[in-house]
């Protein structure tokens, strides 16, 4: 079926099956920051923002996303907050293999917009962003600075 998705502020027309996942649809649009990690909603790698909230694009359907606004890191290229958290991550060497990088950045970005300040809360919100390379602590150092939270 033909659908229209609003992705990074642009209307995109595409042809999908009812069970095409949002992940597949976004990759069809050339948004390669959206990546598949696990097939079971268990890793967070496929995170995108829907109406400013992080969701898993591997278990959302493209058809469900019609009428909502989807954001991927490609759409935040010029965003100040995004630039800052990306820079912080790079400065800590917390990017490593980078496969889960965009999904982490998006989730942190959404928390910044919600102005979440408690470190404990931030960590809890990020629990679904698994990373196998970094051991998380370098990410935490980068995120703490970005979110302006202390211990």
């Amino acid at each position: 079926m033909k659908i229209t998705l609003t992705v990074n502020g642009r209307k995109e027309n595409l042809e999908v099956e009812p069970s095409t996942t949002l992940l597949e649809a976004l990759r069809m649009l050339g948004l390669y920051s959206v990546r598949k990690g696990c097939d079971t909603a268990s890793c967070g790698v496929c995170t995108v923002l829907m109406d400013s909230k992080p969701i898993l694009s591997c278990c959302s359907l493209a058809v469900q996303a019609q009428g909502h606004s989807i954001t991927t890191v490609e759409g935040l290229e010029k965003d100040k907050d995004f630039e800052e958290i990306r820079k912080n991550l790079l400065l800590e060497g917390a990017d490593q293999c980078g496969y889960c990088g965009p999904s982490l950045l998006l989730t942190v970005y959404s928390l910044k917009k919600r102005n979440i300040k408690s470190l404990q809360e931030i960590q809890k919100y990020l629990v679904g962003n698994l990373c196998r390379c970094t051991g998380y602590h370098s990410q935490l150092r980068a995120i703490k600075e970005f979110m302006e939270v202390g211990e």
Binding site: V34, E74, R86, L90, G101
Partner: peptide, 22 residues
């Protein structure tokens, strides 16, 4: 020196870089 990774910026910005992207 703890310099930034040379490929980090592009990867975090979602540039096609991994096998399936290419």
């Amino acid at each position: 020196r703890s310099i930034k990774k040379v490929d980090g910026y592009g990867i975090l910005s979602g540039k096609p870089a991994y096998t399936d992207d290419l």
